[in-house]
Structure formats: structure tokens, C-alpha cells
Design a protein around this nucleic acid. Structure first.
Length: 854
RNA sequence: GCCGGCAUGGCGAAAUGGUAAACGCAGCGGACUUAAAAUCCGCUGGCCCGCGAGGGUCUUGCGGGUUCGAGUCCCGCUGCCGGUACCA
């Protein structure tokens, strides 16, 4: 006895055997341009998983959910005649890997490699049809080289405002631009600004990452540092507009749009004792209602405009804000604070003086760091004005005459001079024209999106291919790529904002007068373009060959390159935004033929623990895929995860459910085999190659082919599996099973449960030599016969006033008049309409009759 | 607060505006077995009527509406989950 539980079918024997065969025969290799077996006549299909972060914990059951879904699509598409690209790789740089290495005291190279070995073993044990020859690892020198090369593409480019595209900075050099002018417009640039610095992680973080690491218990503070930035804000418009033609969940599109945060409004220039101060507002129509102005405490003009009497209070307030951690600012959300500067601004529309305050509810990082406060029609301004007794002046009349105080929607302008009587949108247009013609302001579109903070003070990431000389940066030549990080015994963060690479003195020295940049790139760098590398993973001349790019990523008249991308929602605004940005830059520069990376995106839902709570070590409800494979087999795990419910839905785990699908697979097994008294399996005698056709069985089989084909297309795997269960139950109940029908089911089931179906089919091949010689996975997808679906008679439901009263059976070809007559003649219908008069009869062919009685 | 998503049996769920609950889990009964497991067969939303076959009636979070007909479409709520937050 090898196990405490008797196996319902010998998966533990045949699953590893088939996995070895697929590997040694390279069954799922995909040939692209340049490869020997390439067949360019087949349509391509690029089916992509979000590659995992190889953590020390190994795979959890959430990984195989998305991976099984794409595996089913990839296998089915291959059987349907597509040339399928279905690869896997490792997102192996980054903070968690380095934190793990620090914790275990081992070099991140060692721990990362060990984790990858474990992940690869686990994925292979699930029988995924990956082309393992295309495996990529973001930490491989051959990969790092091209990550750095792409960075240099950004470094050597600027955003051309006329063409709205990235262009090489050499264009600007040709026009005679100076070096500082060019540095000021590069897509990759150096900037000194307040950034998010985490003292205990010893690095800065991107805006998008801050929450994640705070949630893990790390502290984050604001600190001015010189950093590498990527000018993603130039792409804000395109990143919003280009979402439209993508087949993404609307919720994810919205999340990105909100993150980019486009606001249309105006800049208005106020005069404050000779200093022009510009504010940004989305409601220029309320300018007459501005009763005070607020500057961010960090605003550069605060000290110069403050009156001598107010200066001590102002300085104290600025001091207090600076020491306030970000957390405190968030928590004290609604409780407004602020100080009067003693200065007055002149409202340009009516020359009224209004007091200028500073308050931390205005942030330096958004807009101009200054606002005009309209307390009557803005919640925050209202709270502030109420607290500090500032005047509140109505300038918008609500359409329904509701309370104007705190009314923030659109209405009609009042108390607004020349704007009076205009609707909010009309007033906006009018005032903007007025401001522009008087040089007092202009139309302005403002985004929430900030430029991407791209440098980290860490060891485990790609070094920047940059050297510094005489305070000026420059790129190292492509021939020096990849630039690998030096081998450091001690790679721990130092707390020095230059990062741990500062310790590698030999490595830093580039020449007598030039030193290397010591910052490294964030984890996102590698994941921004890995899908491109899969198309041509071993190319040492280019990041991807022109031919491979055109074939795998272009050519289907869609903006998105990858046909299907499946992964979790957690990347909605990080990876998915960054990758789109890089893709667009490479597209602009002529390296790619599509403007978008991912045509169709699907988010798999979270799998919860058996108790309905999120799986976590502390709750002890984590399910390890290895344990499930050991007890039930890979096919059962795959099938269960697809049978649980719709892919996108959040759903709880159930071991009983795994047992249920495992029982189903055992029933399929027993259609093919019967158990001999000695425990061995022999071919089921009810299988027949020459069975007389059984019409109802045949109909079930063809209905199954039809439904499974449709459902796979819709990614509706749970209902496809239901149908295959129905078909299997029909086989179990039948006295004779035609081999061809069983093979049809096996073909349908093969993408879901590849090991079991191949094993059964191999035995059928031995017994029935007429069957095709190849594996199921290499055979064409089954076609259903519409004739087999035709039935002679159908049941029609008869309703009276919408209530089910009787059922009648009619010939399937019966015309509506015949159906109506039969319905009216049904005995229980006659009873139901007795005493009333028939007002109307609705006949829905092949479905129902509804008799309306009065 | 704002923006999304969801709400159907004891549980996971299914249902192009057309028989609500397919399929699976759990439960109940039966066959096989000395017995158990496994397997196979059958039953399984609530209430009411009937010894029974069967029949009636109610039921998709709540309240309205559109329609011959609504789980599905529209309006208004409630609850849960996710995202986001002083973004002017």
C-alpha cells in the first residue's frame, strides 16, 4: 500500500509519466519565425499568464487557478489549429526576494534560484502545456541586458508635443538644443524632489507601492532625494484613451482611469502683493465665490508673502506639518487645520482682496499647490471656512432649489457678475475665455498621475547603465550591457540613500573621472516587457527580432499584442500601467507594431480558505497544491479549480469539492476500464467500435462537443465541466459505448484533464488500431454534427397568464398554429381557462405558449 | 465620503426576457458486501391537500415599475466584498 487512501484511478503512476513524455518530446513547443518547424500559415494565439514571483512559500492554490484557465485555452486553441505561444517565467528581482535573502542570510541569487527550482517543479507537476524552452528569468544576464537597453531607449528619447509620440533626443541635438535643455525633457530623467523613503527598507518607493509596503508594517516618510524618474505623465492621455478598444473588464479600465485622474479646469492667476500666484480649479465658474486662498505649507512663496506679525505662526505651522508623518495626515482627515499668512490676494474677476491661508489640506504635489477656496460649493473649503469663520458666498443656484450651502453639483450661476444666469458648463466656458483674453489664466487639464519614481537603493535589481562625470550623467554604450551588479558579501541596505552598491568601490569606478550610478531599478522593470521576450527568448542581437515581433505580437488588426492575459486584480494600476507605458514608448520608437500590450485581460477571482476567509498562515487555512496533487492528482486539482465557479469570482475552497470532481474523473476512467478482482484495470467490455448508433447517446455527445467548444471560448469552464459530467453519466448508464463517442468526450476533456484523457486514449489505441496514432493533444478539436442535435419531438410549456399549467409534446417542426391548437386542447389548460375569455396567445416556437385570459 | 462588484436551496453554483435551482457537495433510502469503504440505482426548496399516484401554492436581499411573461431590463433602498481617499 503506497497510500492510506485507495486511489480511484492510478493517477500517481500515469501523471508523472505523461509529464516526462511531454517534456522529452517537446509536445508543447511552439515554433516561431526562424524556428525549423515554423508554419506561418497558422493563425497565432499568444496566451499569457502573469508570471509568478518565486517566493519561498512556493505555489499557492491561487496560482493554478489562472494558470489552468490559460492552459485550457492554449490547449484548445492548439487543437483548433492555432499556433499557440504559451510560456512561463520568473519575476525574480525585487524587494520581497531581497527581504527573504536578508532573513535567511543567503545571497538573493541562491535563494531566488532555489525558489525557482521549487516553483518549476510544482508547475510541471500540474501538467501545464508551457513551452519550457522559452522560459525567461528577469535576473538572467541575457535578460537584464535588454531591460537596461530598453531603459536606455527611454533615456535617449523625449516626448514630442507635436506628434504626441516619443522621439529620439538626437532630433533635438540636430536642432541645436543644449545639454541641459535635452536633460529636461528626457523620458528617463534625474529629479530632486520629495519622495517616499522607507527607513527600514532602506529605499524609496513609487507612489503606487507605498500602500502595499505600509500594509506590511514598514514605515514610509517624505524626504527630498535625487532620483531617476520616468516621464509617464506625458502618456496620461494616451493611457486613458487607448483603453477603449481593449477587451478588459470595465472595472479595471475605470481603476486605471481614476488612477490617472484626468481633471479638466483652469489656472487662474491671483496677485498677492506683487507676486503672481496661480491656482488650479475644476470650477472656474465659481470664481466670484472665492472668499479666501489656500497655499500648501510647502509652497515656495509662503515665506515671502507672509506678514511679519503672522510669520512666527506660519513658520510654526510649516514645522508641524513637516514632522507630521503621512499616517497622521491621513487619520486627521476631516479635522482641518491652517494659519492665516497675513497676506491678501486680489481676485482677478472683481478685484476684491481675499485672505491667503496655508493649510495641509492643500498639497504641493497636485495642481499648483495653491487653491482658490469656494466654501459655498466645496465640502473641504466649507469645513475650513466654518472652522475659521471665513465668509461663505453663494454663486451657484441648485436646480431643485435645495440648500445651496455645500452644493457641489451643476446649477446656475448667481452673484457672479457677467456669468449670472449661465449653467455651470456654459459659465465654465465663458470664464475661461474671459481669463484667457485678459491674460489672467488659461484652460488646463490636470492629472493625478505622477511621474514614475524609478530608482531604488537596493542590491537585488538591475543597475542603471549610467555613469556620472563632472556632475553630468551619460549612458554607457550598448556594448557594455548587461551591466551586472557586483558580487557583494554584504548586500544589506545601509540607510545611505545611495544604496548598498556604494560599498563596491571597484565596481563604481568607471574611469579616473567617472563613477557608476549606484541606484538600481525597481522590480517592475523586468515585468514591464517579459511578454515581449517570450517571443524570441534567446536572441542575443535584439530584445526581440523584427520577424518574431511581427508574427507573435502583431497581425490581427487589434491594438493589443497578447491575445489573452490572465492574472489577479492586484496589478490593475501598477504592472498593467507600467507595461502599457513601456510598450507605447517602444511602439513610438518603431520597435513594436502594436500600441497596446494586452488585448484581452481577465482577472481570476481570489480563492478563499475553506472557512470563507482569505487564506493566510496565521489562520491556518492555506491549501498547498502539492498536498492536493498527492491525494487526488493534478487533473483533479485542475478540474476542481475550474469547476468551483466562474473564473472571475471570489470563491471558497472545499476539499469535498475536490473529491467530487475526482469522483467524476474516476467515472470517466471506469467508462473505459473495469476493475479485475486482482485490482488491475481491464478494458471495459461495453466499449465497441462497431456499435449500432444510439440516437440519444449520440445527441448527448454532440451537445457536449457544442457546449464545451462554446464555453471554452467564453472562459465558462464550470458549465463546460457540468456538460461533460452529464455526458459521462450517460456513458455510465449505457449498455454499449461506441469508442468514437468516448474519444469525442476525451478530446473535449483533454485540455482540462490532460493526463487522464491521454492515458485512457493510449489504451484505446492499443485495443482499437483504427484510432489515430497521435496523442489527443495533437489531434484536431472535435466538430459537432448539427444533424445529431435534431430531435423529432419537443416538449412545449403551456402557461396561462404566465403561470405554468401544462406541458405538451409536439413535432419539433410543428408550426405555431399547430402548437397553439395543441396547447388549447391540453386538458389542464382547458380547466385553467374555464370561465374566462382568451385575450391573446403568445407562441414562442420550440419553447412555450402563453395564453392570456381575462 | 467617492468609485466599482456582488446578493438564487443546507453549501459551491446554473439559467440568449420564456419550465428557477442544471451539474457537483452534503443528507436520506436501496443494491452489492459477513461488515465497512468504494461503486451502482433512486430521492432530496418551503408550505398546504391526498393513504397513494398526484395536485395546489409560495419562493431568486427589500419596495416599486416595464412586459403576455422578470433571477435577468428600469427606478428607489438595504446588506456584504473590493478599490480609493483632503487630487481642489
Amino acid at each position: 500500500m503506497s497510500s492510506d487512501r485507495r486511489k480511484p484511478f492510478p493517477f500517481d503512476e500515469f501523471e508523472p509519466r505523461w509529464q516526462q513524455r511531454w517534456e522529452s518530446e517537446k509536445t508543447f513547443g511552439s515554433a516561431g519565425p526562424g524556428d525549423p518547424d515554423f508554419d506561418g500559415s497558422k493563425p497565432k494565439c499568444f496566451v499569457l499568464d502573469m508570471f509568478p514571483y518565486p517566493s519561498g512559500a512556493g505555489l499557492h492554490v491561487g496560482h493554478p487557478e489562472g494558470y489552468t484557465a490559460t492552459d485550457i485555452i492554449a490547449r484548445a486553441k492548439r487543437m483548433q489549429g492555432h499556433n499557440v505561444l504559451h510560456p512561463m517565467g520568473w519575476d525574480a528581482f525585487g524587494l520581497p526576494a531581497e527581504q527573504y535573502a536578508i532573513k535567511t542570510g543567503q545571497h538573493p541569487r541562491i535563494t531566488t534560484d532555489a525558489n525557482i527550482v521549487n516553483f518549476r517543479r510544482q508547475l510541471k507537476s500540474l501538467g501545464f502545456a508551457y513551452d519550457w524552452d522559452r522560459e525567461v528569468n528577469t535576473t538572467d544576464p541575457g535578460y537584464v541586458r535588454w531591460t537596461q537597453w530598453i531603459f536606455l531607449q527611454l533615456y535617449h528619447s523625449y516626448f514630442c508635443e507635436e506628434s504626441r509620440k516619443a522621439r529620439p533626443v538626437s532630433d533635438l541635438e540636430a536642432k541645436g538644443w543644449s545639454r541641459p535643455q535635452i536633460d529636461a525633457v528626457r523620458l528617463a530623467f534625474v529629479h530632486e524632489a520629495p519622495v517616499w523613503w522607507s527607513p527600514d527598507l532602506g529605499t524609496v518607493l513609487a507612489n503606487e507601492e507605498v500602500d502595499e509596503w505600509k500594509a506590511k508594517g514598514h514605515t514610509v516618510e517624505r524626504r527630498p532625494l535625487r532620483q531617476w524618474m520616468l516621464r509617464i505623465t506625458k502618456y496620461a492621455d494616451r493611457l486613458i484613451n487607448d483603453l477603449d478598444p481593449l477587451d478588459w473588464p470595465e472595472g479595471i479600465k475605470l481603476l486605471q482611469k481614476n488612477w490617472i485622474g484626468k481633471s479638466e479646469g483652469a489656472e487662474v492667476i491671483f496677485n498677492v502683493h506683487g507676486h503672481p500666484i496661480t491656482v488650479f480649479t475644476t470650477r472656474p465658474d465659481t470664481l466670484f465665490g472665492a472668499t479666501y486662498m489656500v497655499l500648501a505649507p510647502e509652497h515656495p512663496l509662503v515665506s515671502s508673502i507672509s506678514s511679519p506679525e503672522q510669520l512666527p505662526a506660519v513658520s510654526a505651522y510649516i514645522q508641524a506639518c513637516a514632522s507630521k508623518s503621512d499616517m497622521d495626515r491621513g487619520d486627521l482627515n476631516k479635522d482641518k487645520s491652517g494659519v492665516f499668512t497675513g497676506a491678501f490676494a486680489i481676485n482677478p474677476v472683481n478685484n476684491e482682496p481675499i485672505p491667503v491661508w496655508i493649510a495641509d489640506y492643500v498639497m504641493m504635489g497636485y495642481g499648483t499647490g495653491a487653491i482658490m477656496a469656494v466654501p459655498a460649493h466645496d465640502d473641504r473649503d466649507l469645513a475650513f471656512a466654518t472652522k475659521f469663520n471665513l465668509p461663505i458666498l453663494q454663486v451657484v443656484q441648485p436646480p431643485d432649489n435645495s440648500d445651496w450651502q455645500g452644493f457641489t453639483d451643476e446649477g446656475t450661476a448667481i452673484n457672479s457678475g457677467f456669468l449670472d444666469g449661465l449653467t455651470t458648463p456654459a459659465a465654465k466656458q465663458h470664464i475661461i475665455s474671459w481669463l484667457e483674453s485678459n491674460n489672467l489664466g488659461r484652460r488646463r487639464i490636470q492629472f493625478k498621475l505622477r511621474d514614475w519614481l524609478f530608482s531604488r537603493q537596493r542590491y537585488w535589481g538591475e543597475p542603471f547603465p549610467i555613469v556620472w562625470e563632472n556632475g553630468e550623467h551619460r549612458a554607457i554604450p550598448d556594448s557594455e550591457l548587461p551591466l551586472l551588479q557586483p558580487d557583494l558579501e554584504d548586500f544589506k541596505p545601509t540607510g545611505d540613500p545611495r544604496g548598498p552598491l556604494i560599498k563596491a568601490t571597484d565596481w563604481i569606478r568607471y574611469s579616473d573621472s567617472a563613477q557608476r550610478e549606484t541606484n538600481t531599478m525597481p522590480q517592475w522593470a523586468g515585468s514591464c516587457w517579459y511578454y515581449l521576450r517570450y517571443c524570441d527568448p534567446h536572441n542575443s542581437d535584439r530584445f526581440i527580432s523584427r520577424e518574431a515581433e511581427a508574427y507573435w505580437l502583431g497581425g490581427n488588426d487589434k491594438p493589443g499584442a497578447v491575445d489573452l492575459y490572465v492574472g489577479g486584480t492586484e496589478h490593475a494600476v501598477l504592472h498593467l500601467l507600467y507595461a502599457r507605458f513601456w510598450h507605447k514608448v517602444l511602439f513610438d520608437l518603431g520597435h513594436l507594431s502594436t500600441p497596446e500590450p494586452f488585448q484581452k485581460l481577465v482577472n481570476q477571482g481570489l480563492i478563499l480558505g475553506e472557512d470563507g476567509a482569505k487564506m493566510s498562515k496565521s489562520l491556518g487555512n492555506v491549501v498547498n497544491p502539492d498536498d492536493v496533487v498527492r491525494a487526488y492528482g493534478a487533473d483533479s486539482l485542475r478540474l476542481y479549480e475550474m469547476f468551483m465557479g466562474p473564473l472571475e469570482q471570489v470563491k471558497p475552497w472545499s476539499m469535498k469539492g475536490v473529491e467530487g470532481v475526482s469522483r467524476f474523473l474516476a467515472r470517466v476512467w471506469r467508462v473505459a476500464f473495469t476493475e479485475s478482482p486482482d485490482g488491475s484495470w481491464a478494458l471495459n467490455p461495453k466499449l465497441s467500435a462497431s456499435a449500432p448508433p444510439d440516437k440519444s447517446l449520440r445527441r448527448t455527445v454532440h451537445e457536449t462537443i457544442r457546449k464545451v467548444t462554446d464555453d471554452i471560448d467564453k472562459l465558462s469552464f464550470n458549465t463546460a465541466i457540468s456538460q461533460m459530467m452529464i455526458c459521462t453519466n450517460a456513458f455510465t448508464a449505457a449498455d454499449v459505448v461506441p469508442v468514437a463517442d468516448l474519444v469525442s468526450l476525451l478530446l473535449c476533456l483533454n485540455p482540462f484533464a490532460p493526463h487522464l484523457t491521454e492515458e485512457i486514449f493510449a489504451h484505446l489505441q492499443a485495443a482499437f488500431p483504427d484510432l489515430p496514432a497521435s496523442q489527443l493533444a495533437l489531434q484536431p478539436w472535435p466538430q459537432f454534427d448539427p444533424a445529431a442535435l435534431v430531435v423529432d419531438e419537443i416538449e412545449i410549456v403551456v402557461q396561462v397568464n404566465g403561470k405554468l399549467r401544462d406541458k405538451i409534446t409536439v413535432a419539433s417542426a410543428a408550426d405555431p398554429a399547430t402548437i397553439e391548437a395543441a396547447a388549447l386542447a391540453a386538458p389542464r389548460v382547458i380547466d385553467a381557462i374555464a370561465g374566462g375569455s382568451i385575450a391573446k396567445v403568445i407562441v414562442v416556437p420550440k419553447k412555450l405558449v402563453n395564453i392570456v385570459v381575462k
